[in-house]
Design a binder for these strands. Structure first.
Lengths: 194, 194
DNA sequence: GGGGTTATTGACTGAGCATTCAAGAACTGG
DNA sequence: CCAGTTCTTGAATGCTCAGTCAATAACCCC
């Protein structure tokens, strides 16, 4: 190495994430990204190679951030409630109502590279697995035989729609109703199967 | 009138709808729209005025189409199940997996004119009202006092996420699980409150 | 301190975008 | 069949986009 980078990779990635999260992929131009990162086009392309790679970096960073925010020491139904409540809180407290970077990008991902689409799918899969784990735990703890697949689908639907409707500017009351509805459905299913 | 239009307004609108549904707003260029409608730029602009108005026409047409598809003579819980099953069927049977024009457009609607955003909100509101009506009917028919607001949120979440995850290419099994989960939650709530 | 390597700079390129418009074509009423 | 009106045509306009590159600057090692 001879001339060191003047910028911090992490800060640059954070800037990319902020821009793509707010504006989506297509509406984020290179000038937007230079503003968001403080880097000039040449530096951005030297570091990342293409706009789509910059987006992929942002997606991976976003998923890691969400993973951290949803990690909990709680178990079973408590953990499930905590996850869905956290999704509601994160969504509603954002004054810009940016929703979810991954879900926002799904509609415009049809023409993206397989690697990018896979990164987005990975985000969805991880959320689903997280919910499934807590559901299985809840069933085991209660000694109840519940339809995990169906309840997992319902909880996943709650998380997804909360994020989407958050971006749509729907009131927090609705988002909380979704989370409460899903948790109540799981609680009732557990109670009935015990 | 002196020189009559050579094209049919309805066919043109259908072409606009097809293009915007498949590609979203930003990625649909005027050349794409001339291909989809068979009209040249001049004719499109003479007839509609701007790309965003063309989009609004498409949204209104889309909402009318969905309204027709979800209208049923059934009542209460049967109607609710019918609506959610129809959403699943429409979503999964589309080989292009275009999802919902309205929900697809939400992330990129932030910079659109208030009129356009209102048209999109109108689509969401209409879906919510439809579900609420069937839920109230179901509660009245069963003589049950249920938490309509929460169950409405849950069913709305099911419909929204089905469409979004359809565009994401998720398997039909998941989409059906969401609908079944929501219907089961309503059924259980009714049974418990009777 | 100089040679070799890599980073930064910002103007530049070519393509594609939404939109316009002047010219010509098609029709109606008189 | 002509005057008047509206529609169609497709090239042109000005802009913005993603991506490039030659010049310059910064640094390390010897």
């Amino acid at each position: 190495m001879v001339r060191p980078r003047e910028f911090d990779d992490d800060e640059a990635a954070e800037g990319l994430l902020g821009a793509f999260w707010r504006h989506g992929y297509a509406r984020t131009s290179i000038p937007t990204l230079t503003d968001a990162t403080g880097l000039l086009p040449g530096s951005l392309y030297a570091a990342f190679g293409s706009k789509e790679v910059m987006f992929r970096i942002a997606v991976e960073r976003y998923i890691a951030e969400i993973r951290r925010a949803l990690t909990t020491e709680k178990r079973g139904l408590d953990a499930l409630r905590h996850v869905l409540d956290t999704v509601v809180r994160l969504t509603a407290k954002d004054p810009e109502r940016r929703g979810c970077l991954v879900l926002n990008a799904i509609p415009e991902s049809t023409t993206m590279a397989p690697e990018t689409r896979q990164a987005l799918q990975g985000g969805l899969d991880e959320m689903r697995r997280l919910l499934r784990g807590h559901l299985r735990e809840a069933a085991a703890d209660a000694g109840a035989r519940i339809d995990v697949e169906r309840l997992e689908a319902l909880c996943f639907a709650a998380a997804v729609s909360t994020r989407v409707l958050g971006r749509a500017g729907q009131p927090r009351r609705l988002l909380q109703g979704i989370a409460d509805g899903a948790v109540a459905a799981v609680r009732d299913a557990l109670a009935q199967a015990t």
